[in-house]
Simulated scan of single mutants.
Amino acid sequence: MNVLIILAIMTVIIIVWASVDYMLGRKKHLTATNKLKLDPENGQWSFYSEGTKFFKQYFEDLKSAESFIYVQFYIVRNDPLGKEMFQILKKKASDGVTVFFVVDALGSHKLPKSVIESLEESGVNVLVIERPKFPYLFYSFNRRNHRKISVIDGDFAYIGGFNVGEEYLGKDPKLGHWRDYHLRLSGSVVKQFYALIDWELKQSTAQTFHFEFPPVEEKGKEKFTLFATNGEHMESFFLSKINEAKESIFIGTPYFIPGRKIVQALKTACQNGIKVKILIPMRADHPFVKEAAIPFLLPLLHAGAEVYRYYPGFYHAKVFMIDKSFCDLGTANFDKRSFHLNNEVNCLFTSQELIDTVLKVVDFDLQQSEQLQLPDLTKRSLLERTKGLFAITISKFL
């Protein structure tokens, strides 16, 4: 009995500490949140939705670098795919190319210290950012840098959903075929990535780096805009675009936990005759994310939205489309974490050719999916409902 009392007291203390830590950490963070939205720049594009093709091109571009490489991912594994990238970066650094390798402290926490030391010994500038720290340990633990961008010389820039690991090639038997969307850009838009890098380094590290970016070749007729946030402003951006919709809204995301404001805006869109489609995965790669989505999906299904679950494997793409004439593709999920905690960056464009290309892939993915019906959610067991109640209480951390 005494043991149970002690455990209960300790649990209460931990909950109170975490709550106060989060509240104070959030308050301080809000004083420093900002956004970076740059003027549109011209560019040319390539679109990737399959890991094998994406990494083949990506590694070829890394190998072709002559002066500058900036690589940033949320997750980098020390598996065969990660090791292949490490060898390329070390070789380019030893050849005199300025190389930056940037990863999130928790997303890539499994990277051995020996790997980081080996990269640094080869001349690679390694930055492990957003480490949990006092005085707001719990809050900073949840503050993640979720950006996935790369810049190679002044020639190419990458942005999208792929991280670096064998699962992104579909080699995880639990998750199966991996679906993601990623852009490879060239032309004047690469200068936007230079601005983002400067912004990123100033925010994320006390270190000062002095380097000159390679010149950018002016080419491409399509316009692209980067929109970056560091823990706020993403929700208000999505709300503003939803309210602009006249005919259709499409949301593709692995985690649909958007909060009440977004749900209300989408319900209103449905009631106004706007067609709303949402594509999410059937499989889950994290506990409780499926259960946490249900309270947000139910009112939308009642309002007439169409919800599809991707069955062939894991759907990890992050795409938001309005009226088939505006598209947002990048790193932000449609969840509270991306809206209020994470550092994210999305690419905005109205290129009809690129939108049509994305739509073809989206349509194919919808054909591979099963439409979710109200009875699928209303006829849940008591255990499933209990899990859902717990999931919604922790939804901001999922």
Results as ranks from 00 to 15, higher is better:
Lys275His: 13
Ile15Asp: 05
Phe227His: 06
Pro214His: 07
Gln368Lys: 15
Asp95Cys: 01
Leu30Glu: 13
Asp61Thr: 03
Thr268Met: 07
Ile249Glu: 02
Lys290Cys: 07
Asn230Phe: 08
Val128Asn: 04
Asp95Ser: 12
Asp335His: 06
Met23His: 14
Thr268Cys: 05
Leu111Asp: 02
Pro214Thr: 04
Ile392Trp: 00
Gln368Pro: 06
Asp180Phe: 05
Arg143Phe: 05
Met282Cys: 04
Ala265Tyr: 02
Lys113Leu: 12
Phe390Leu: 15
Pro312Ile: 11
Ile152His: 06
Leu24Asp: 01
Ala195Cys: 03
Val103Glu: 02
Ser204Asn: 12
Asn34Trp: 08
Phe86Ser: 05
Lys133Gln: 13
Arg147Thr: 11
Gln368His: 14
Phe326Trp: 10
Trp45Ser: 12
Glu121Phe: 03
Leu341Ser: 00
Gly220Cys: 07
Asn34His: 14
Ile152Tyr: 08
Lys174Ser: 11
Lys91Thr: 14
Ile257Cys: 01
Pro214Phe: 03
Lys90Glu: 12
Leu341Thr: 04
Asn78Gly: 07
Tyr74Gln: 03
Thr393Trp: 10
Ile355Gly: 09
His233Asp: 08
Ala195Arg: 14
Asp79Phe: 09
Asp153Ala: 11
Val263Ala: 06
Tyr181Glu: 12
Phe320Pro: 01
Pro254Asp: 14
Ser108Ala: 15
Pro215Ala: 11
Pro173Leu: 07
Lys56Gly: 04
Asn342Tyr: 11
Leu185Lys: 10
Gly107Phe: 05
Tyr136Pro: 06
Thr268Arg: 12
Ala157Gly: 13
Asp39Lys: 13
Leu389Pro: 01
Leu183Pro: 04
Ser46Trp: 06
Ile257Tyr: 00
Arg144His: 08
Ile274Cys: 04
Val263Thr: 11
Thr52Asp: 11
Arg380His: 05
Leu382Ala: 15
Arg144Met: 12
Thr331Val: 08
Glu217Lys: 15
Ala303Cys: 02
Gln367Trp: 00
Pro215Lys: 11
Glu60Tyr: 07
